[in-house]
Nucleic acid binder design. Structure first.
Lengths: 340, 340
DNA sequence: TTGTAAGCGTTATCAT
DNA sequence: ATGATAACGCTTACAA
């Protein structure tokens, strides 16, 4: 069994020292005479030499790899974020790998340990089972994705769900809706208080009757959306009058509600308007397509990547920064004027 | 700036040699007296020592990490595969990271180079820009995901799209459909010949009039599906009679077709049945929900992971194996008896 | 059971 | 511009 060639083999073959080979390989400013460089490159090709990144990392303490740690690779939110991250990191020659915890805290911690064991130069994470202090203990460049006030020691990049809820309600109000239901999730991650706050605050400001009686909390999945809708429209519900519009905390819930409305023969948007949040792929495939608040996913990825780079380069002694990017209303077919 | 403690620091603190510390850390069968072990563990805790995985890898030539390289993290096909892979690898204490090339061959090759530079112990890949010989040149344990006949030197794990097409057609035939259209993709990856072969072969065997005139090829996206449907139903089409059912090469196309049918006021499934392939999340959110051929995604992941483990452990001199897992019909609302 | 010492393949420092 | 040499932090024979 032939072992792989090392720079020593290359050096011997090229008749130079291994320092010279190293200089050629790294290809930075190191001065090497053109003829020497060529000899080395020929030796590399002849031997089929491959640089050993592990050995290199041991010396340089750099892996040129960062980890993007997410709880759920099936959530359509992440691909666009990832694209933003990769586009930024690519320019720096830094590879991005994904760590998918699948909502298992154990797995998340294992990935973080990998990072703190020198396998990654930095981490972008949307944490589910790790708190501020645990992250700090890793003493590693880390940027959080998500608007997390519970991580005071870290940079965060998130989107403005509070503002998004208000924006959505404002749009519905402009269509003449006054009774607007809210379907909230009760899920694996923290409940979306920001949406509820936005809902209640908007009610106060606008004078619309937005209160707890129009709010229903369900499991954070497709079936939950249907349950929420049936509850809000149920004749037995303790609602003075049923809502003419519904805001859902995310698109999955909204799509569940939309399908339930079809099953109940409630016309959307004729008799009921529905607005989601996130703008996932499935939102455009329904009939009618779903009106929703799109999160700036790609921009979140870019911004987070940029901040991580700063932390990785600068000593990173600046105060933590919090970035909250605005969401955008995507008007589609599931919303229309309020029924009279 | 305090450097991180190493096993040498731990050894000094515990009053033992670094070999002993190493033995404790690895926690395998190495014999260490209980008292010694405890002293070492206390030293580790006291110093906040973290194992340096890079240095360890340099010695052991193992990273206990494998790479799952995919072209498109936004494709809902992958999350389930990933889950299968992770569930198998977890048991072996092997971490799985994702490499997402975003359909950029350059990126795929960069990731593969990372792997061949000793960063990963093995690779699971659905290649888009790398061929059999290039993969072989990496001399690395590799298993391919997908039914790829063009990689004779590698194990492959895929699903039976040929059989799936036949199964779907058989179901439609059992509902009384005789004129069945096929919407194929012309996409970033190789075209799905297997589906077309299944379609034509089934036509021969069954005597149904399945021929090229009922086949349309479109871009492999949501809009493409709509175009395909409009073409097949168009009065100006050179079709003797329009199809009463449509098989689409994947769910995205099928969903596009379904939405286009709504727009044309064609009742599904009353006037037209539609069958997709893959069973992505969006397939259950439409009205009616999409009948589709589900790929055994999770099982593909498990199987591929298992084979990769064999290659990583065994010298891997066995002949390449090809596994083709069967698909499953998911009957939902988009199919019904043929209109008379 | 524990210690000694020789690497693993690279980079970095210091000469030349 | 190039070479010798000492790290980097760990694992692993082999010896004790």
């Amino acid at each position: 069994m032939n072992r792989r060639p090392t720079i020593i083999d290359v050096a011997r073959q090229a008749g130079v020292s291994k320092s010279t080979v190293s200089r050629v390989i790294r290809g930075d400013g190191a001065s090497v005479r053109e003829a020497t460089r060529r000899r080395v490159e020929e030796a590399i090709a002849a031997l089929g030499y491959e640089h050993n990144a592990v050995a290199s990392s041991l010396r340089t303490e750099r892996t040129n790899t960062i980890m993007l740690a997410i709880p759920d690779i099936a959530n359509p939110f992440w691909p666009d974020v990832a694209r933003g991250v990769q586009d930024v990191m690519d320019e720096q020659g830094i590879a991005v790998v994904f760590a998918n915890s699948d909502w298992e805290g154990r797995r998340e911690k294992a990935f973080l340990r990998m990072a703190s064991r020198n396998r990654f130069d930095g981490v972008l994470i949307n944490p589910i089972a790790t708190d501020n202090d645990e992250l700090r203990a890793l003493s590693l460049p880390i940027v959080l994705i998500g608007s997390r006030e519970d991580f005071p020691d870290f940079d965060t990049v998130g989107s403005d769900s509070y503002g998004a809820a208000c924006q959505a309600l404002d749009y519905l109000a402009s269509l003449g809706h006054r009774r607007i239901g809210l379907i909230r999730g009760r899920g694996k991650s923290r409940p979306g208080y920001s949406r509820l706050r936005g809902y209640l605050d908007y009610g106060h400001e606008s004078g619309l009757p937005l209160d707890e009686s129009y709010v229903v909390q369900v499991n954070f999945d497709f079936e939950g959306g249907g349950q929420g809708l049936r509850h809000l429209l149920s004749p037995s519900a303790p609602l003075p009058q049923p809502p003419t519009a519904i805001l859902a905390a995310n698109d999955i819930l909204a799509l569940g509600a939309l399908q339930a409305a079809h099953e109940l023969d409630v016309d959307v948007p004729g008799a009921l308007s529905i607005v989601g949040m996130d703008d996932i792929f499935a939102a455009v495939t329904t009939t009618p397509p779903l009106t929703t608040m799109a999160k700036p996913k790609y921009e979140i990825g870019r911004k987070a990547a940029g901040m991580l780079l700063e932390r990785m380069e600068g000593g990173g002694q600046e105060r933590p920064q919090r970035h909250i990017l605005p969401c955008t209303l995507r008007k589609r077919g599931s919303t229309g004027p309020a029924a009279l």
